[in-house]
Every structure is written in C-alpha cells, then in structure tokens.
Design a binder for these strands. Structure first.
Length: 195
DNA sequence: GCAATGATGCACT
DNA sequence: GTGCATCATTGCG
C-alpha cells in the first residue's frame, strides 16, 4: 500500500530510516518501474548547513517549506538529478534524499534507460543513477508522492539491519558534515560505493 | 587498482 | 561569476 502524508509528517531522521526497505514506484508509459530503497540521507531543516534550505527560502528550496509527502527534484553538476521526499510539518524545511535502490520490477527498461551497464548493482546505486534508471527529472519536482506517477509503497518485505554513516559529499557543511544522517541496509550490494 | 578530472545546467551572489 | 547532496572515464604504473 502507498505511504501517505502522515508517514512523511514526522521527524526526518525517522522517515529516512523507515524508508529503507520501502518500494519506490515510477509509472512510465503504462509500466511500473520499481525498486527497493536501500540508502537514504536526511537533510534536517534551517540549521543543517548541508540542507539546501539552510540558506533560506528561494525558488529552488520553497518546495521543502511546503507540505510533506511531496517530491523535491533538483539538478546537480549540470548532469544528474536527485530525488528527495519532503518531510516534517509544513513550514519546517526538510527532506530525505533517496540515494540508492535495488531494482525489482521492469529491470530491462531501467537497464535501457541507464544505457545497459554491465552489472545490475550499477543500475541505481547512487542518486544520479537512480533518477536516470527511473526516468526522473525536473518535470517530477513537486509531485505528490501518493499520486499516480511516482509513489512509495510498503510491500512488507523483510528489511536487513540498518547502518548509519556521515552523509556523502557535504564537506562544506561545517559542524554538520559528520552527522550520521546517512542510512543504508547492511551488506546490500546496491548501496552506493563511498566516494 | 585508484586518484584525478571533465562534463555541464542553473540557482544564487 | 561561483560552486554544487554526481558519475564515467582517463591515466597512471
């Protein structure tokens, strides 16, 4: 069943941890591309210097100030997109970055979107790769995560042990750079490699 | 193997 | 004009 707004309207660290093992689904051309989320990162409000919203409300970050259960998609390095789920009560700007996924349904379509990498563990083992495999771009910014195009559901699949680590690529975030706000399933080969 | 690097759009200063 | 919540490729040896 689809997760609804109440799932996201909670402390961001809880949402980030609880998203591990949930199923991300993208409806594309009459097919459902789906995968099991195995890695996330929490970006927690105005004080977290790694959170885009810590610089205030702008055109890009305004979505994080809105209601939870909505997507926040942005372009990075001019090449890739990153998918987030907006969390917490309206007015508190926070989100969870979906960093990696274990492909489940319609894998051949995802392989084609990724231009046929050698190994399935390379299909969605990173935020940019995941968006490419799921055909997620700027058009899906501000999408309702309980909607008909993009959603996250619970299939009651057993989840492995969850580990934490500092977030990746946020060395600029001062005292916040070492917060253990990255969550991933232990021993899962679809987790992104540390850079 | 691994470190270094280029690609490249765009939000924000 | 600057710098990025990345990734694939190069070039070393």
């Amino acid at each position: 069943m689809k997760l609804d707004r109440s799932f996201y309207e909670r402390p961001t660290l809880h949402v980030a941890s609880d998203l591990i093992g949930k199923i991300l689904v993208r409806r594309l051309n009459g097919r459902n591309l789906a995968g099991r989320i195995v890695e996330t990162e929490a970006y927690v409000g105005p004080l977290d210097l790694a959170c885009h919203a810590s610089r205030g409300k702008t055109a890009r970050t305004s979505i994080m100030f809105g209601p939870p259960g909505v997507s926040y998609v942005y372009m990075i390095y001019g090449v890739y997109f990153c998918l987030n789920a907006v969390t917490e009560a309206e007015g508190f700007p926070a989100a969870v970055l979906i960093r990696a996924m274990e492909p489940l349904d319609n894998i051949p379509t995802m392989r084609a979107l990724r231009e046929n990498p050698e190994k399935d563990t390379a299909l969605a083992s990173g935020p940019g790769k995941l968006c490419r495999a799921m055909s997620i771009d700027k058009n899906l910014n501000a999408a309702d995560l309980s909607g008909r195009v993009l959603w996250i559901e619970d299939r009651k699949i057993e989840t492995g042990r969850i580990e934490t680590s500092p977030r990746i690529g946020v060395d600029y975030a001062g005292e916040y750079k070492d917060r253990p706000w990255r969550f991933f399933e232990r021993d899962n080969p679809h987790v992104s490699r540390p850079r």
